[in-house]
Amino acid sequence: MKNNSLNFQMKFLPTDIISTWKRASLSSIFCSSLFSNNQQKEVFLSNVIATVINECLELVVKYGAKKTENYTLTCNKTNNITTITLSFFLQFQQISLLKSYLKKIYLIKKNNNFESIIFTKTFAELGYAIYSFIEDYNGSIKIDYEKKPRNVTTILKTQITLNLNSKDLKNDY
């Protein structure tokens, strides 16, 4: 179904967003409007996309390691599946931290107790974003990185892949 597909890629410099914080929000709303433009009914999806992409951009701007390199955000939607891929640079220790954090949040989701993530030190705000993404929208998250790190401070090209199924995105209220 060609009619229902959408794919685009955006490249940006994190420094440009740091200097003007609003650009993260601006970009996320723009991306989401591309979705809603495609199909009138997809208002719900587009709001979720704006929320998710905003969190992605905020993440790379806050934690991304090479601020003068171009980062990319790719969106691909075919039928019900929407994939958002974020490609950026991160220190190896942060990648491990993020990975273990992700595991912890999956566990928290199972036990239905997320109070602990509200007060964590590193990635505090991210906890809620991830929790909400996997719990509320049934999304999946994958973190990949290229080559073996020499030590914890090695900067690696990192890819975060987010998957959403619009079948799981019914507004049930």
């Binding site: 685009f8 490249k11 433009n37």
Partner: peptide, 26 residues
Amino acid sequence: EKVSLSFKMPIDHSKDWEKCSLISNF
């Protein structure tokens, strides 16, 4: 090599026309 912002997308003349304005305003 190092752009401030770039955007890439297949755009169908007949279907995606409104996206032009959307992209330029963005």
